[in-house]
Design a protein around this nucleic acid. Structure first.
Length: 569
RNA sequence: CGGGGUGUGGCGCAGCUUGGUAGCGCAUUGCACUGGGGGUGCAAAGGUCACAGGUUCAAAUCCUGUCACCCCGACCA
């Protein structure tokens, strides 16, 4: 490709409504154009990168036996009613009526459509297993798109779906996909960690996220400093501390005027927070629920929500608390009536606690469970944090931020049972197909790669992802020898199937160099009058600092080896 | 959905407080020079000041409403 005919141009100034590094750079480099909030067009340069990522994914999915399919973006709403997701999908489905007045939706994901496909083709256990995948545009009407391609509404996604006859088969498909993912991310030049993730209201056995660690990410994950354990914050568990054993004391009411927080009570009585019970009133389905946890821990609302099958939960408002006759700051499970009490198991790891008295300006001391109050159930609903001990393992948790670039999910029979996707086993028993789904956001992956591969000049892309592998820069267009040689080299490199951008613009060298650095092309070859006289050419790597001189006899082989015979630069 | 912010040539901004001929940098066009890090000079083109009402002799500027976009939070099968 010659720069003179390449559509799109780089920007010196960043549009003011961009914040994240990748957003700024992708705009400045002329990769993307925003057309509405969370909706982007790709220019030729961006499209080249995206295509390359797409091809890497395609190759790796094919290599584990995946078969590519194409599924409709516009789907009848009925399909979603059948799976039960018509009303529950969040964000709500984008929908419209067609000219026959039939309700249609824009697919945010394709489990329904692929299940329909599988259902029609699978009769027997002999038809299983298989993996289908698609690389297509999806639409989710996100409440808040952000960060350029990091979180968008319309996006291209690779979604793979596995179909197996039993758990063992599902486990096998699951691990095949994981191996594929590891190769995909490696080829994209990023280090990604796999972490345990919450499987959400939909149920299912296992779920893992693939996270690129970077401070600019919005995902919080916890990793053992000794390795081994890694989970996102919604899922992470930890070893809770156990308070020293004491003999059970008699409960006493104490006066605590204006002491409405754990902090204040802890200071007033000179006790550590793990001696206090924290009581929080939540509203679930318009009903109050009292949640009690030890004062040194916080509630993990995802874990709590899972106790209510994924229903919406929220802290009750001050008004709701007052309506129930409770006093903010003095709420307590003791003597509470008609409200379910949910305990974090930390409450059972200690004795003689301080707790509210459900009466303004009073607390109890020497509160003990279950002597002094009852609970509907006891679970782990605590939020893991930096420094907590790893559960059933070595080391302590460290907090890291990252970008979720992939997600794998064992669906089990969630969809097959609802949508009647069955097969006959060896004994002619009808059984539900076991499914898994496995996504990678393509645009987000590009943005994530840029987030971690850049400097003050621009992007530093690996050859596997860069729109071009080589940029060829003739420096003095008045020198016919320079022009002739560059043209020849350009042809030769293209014959070797290398991706070359020939910067044939009549611009000062500085302009060309700045553009190459911004776009992040891995190899820069400069042809100048002065070096050409000595039959030499200059090579510089975007990722490095130094320029190297090569004989023009060797340069083609040199570049070819650099790009094709090494894993990446 | 709650909070905050911004809308002025393609991009970045000033002008708005105190109403009176719409301005700057970059990019663009032409010519000349230059040729190893966004080069220099001269000339030129390009704007319903987000939209709709209102106040006024007069509105980018004041008032009311709407829309769009960004950021923080909520949310994220």
């Amino acid at each position: 490709m010659k720069s003179s005919i390449l559509f799109g141009k780089t920007l010196r100034d960043v549009p003011s409504d961009t914040e994240s590094t990748s957003h700024k750079l992708l705009i400045r480099a002329g990769f993307i154009q925003q057309i509405a909030s969370g909706i982007f067009s790709l220019l030729p340069m961006g499209n080249r990168s995206i295509s390359k990522i797409r091809n890497i994914i395609r190759e790796e999915m094919d290599s584990i036996g995946g078969q590519e399919v194409n599924l409709p973006v516009v789907q009848p709403r009925d399909l979603w009613v059948e799976s039960g997701r018509a009303e529950t999908f969040s964000p709500p489905l984008a929908s419209f009526s067609d000219r026959r007045n039939r309700e249609m939706v824009l697919a945010p994901t394709h489990e329904e459509a692929v299940t329909v496909m599988a259902k029609a083709m699978v009769n027997s256990y002999k038809d299983l297993p298989f993996i289908l995948y698609q690389i297509q545009t999806k639409f989710r009407d996100e409440p808040r798109p952000r960060g350029g391609l990091l979180r968008v509404r319309e996006f291209e996604m690779k979604d793979a779906y596995s179909f197996d006859l039993d758990e063992k088969g599902l486990d096998n498909s699951f691990s095949l996909i994981i191996q594929g993912y590891e190769r995909i991310f490696k080829r994209c030049g990023i280090n990604v960690v796999m972490v345990q993730a919450d499987s959400g209201g939909i149920g299912g056995k296992d779920s893992n996220e693939f996270v690129l660690l970077t401070d600019s990410g919005e995902d919080m994950i916890l990793i053992s400093d000794k390795g081994g354990y890694a989970a996102n914050v919604e899922k992470a568990v930890f070893e809770k501390t156990i308070n020293p054993i004491e003999s059970i004391m008699k409960i006493e009411k104490i006066s605590t005027p204006n002491i409405t927080t754990i902090d204040k009570l802890s200071k007033l009585k000179n006790i550590s927070k793990n001696k206090i019970l924290k009581s929080l009133l939540y509203t679930v389905n318009q009903k109050p629920v009292l949640v009690v946890i030890r004062g040194d821990y916080d509630v993990n609302e995802t874990k709590l929500r899972n106790l209510f099958s994924g229903k919406e939960i929220r802290l009750s408002t001050k008004k709701e608390i007052e309506t129930l006759g409770l006093n903010l700051g003095y709420i307590s499970p003791i003597g509470i009536k008609g409200i379910d009490v949910i305990l974090d198991d930390s409450v059972t790891m200690g004795s003689n606690f301080f707790a509210g008295a459900n009466e303004k300006d009073f607390h109890f001391r020497n509160v003990n469970f279950p002597r002094d109050f009852k609970a509907k159930n006891v679970n782990d609903i605590a939020q893991a944090k930096q420094g907590y001990k790893v559960k059933d393992g070595e080391g302590f948790l460290t907090e890291k931020k990252g970008i979720e670039v992939g997600h794998v999910f064992k669906l089990g029979t969630t969809y097959s049972s609802k949508m009647n996707a069955k097969f006959s086993d060896q004994r002619s028993n009808s059984k539900d197909i076991l499914m898994g789904c496995y996504g990678i956001g393509i645009g987000r992956l590009l943005a994530a790669i840029v987030e971690v591969n850049n400097d003050d000049k621009g992007m530093i892309l690996p050859p596997s992802v860069a729109p071009f592998e080589i940029c060829l820069v003739p420096i003095n267009l008045n020198d016919q020898d320079v022009i002739d040689y560059t043209n020849e080299l350009y042809k030769n490199l293209i014959h070797k199937c290398l991706e070359v951008l020939f910067d044939d613009r009549d611009s000062p060298p500085g302009v060309k160099f700045q553009d190459i650095d911004l776009i992040g092309i891995p190899i820069r070859l400069v042809v100048s009058s002065r070096n050409l006289k000595n039959k030499q050419i200059e090579l510089k790597l975007r990722s490095g600092k130094d320029v190297q001189l090569f004989s023009i006899k060797n340069i083609e082989t040199e570049v070819f080896n650099l790009l094709r015979n090494s894993e990446y630069i």
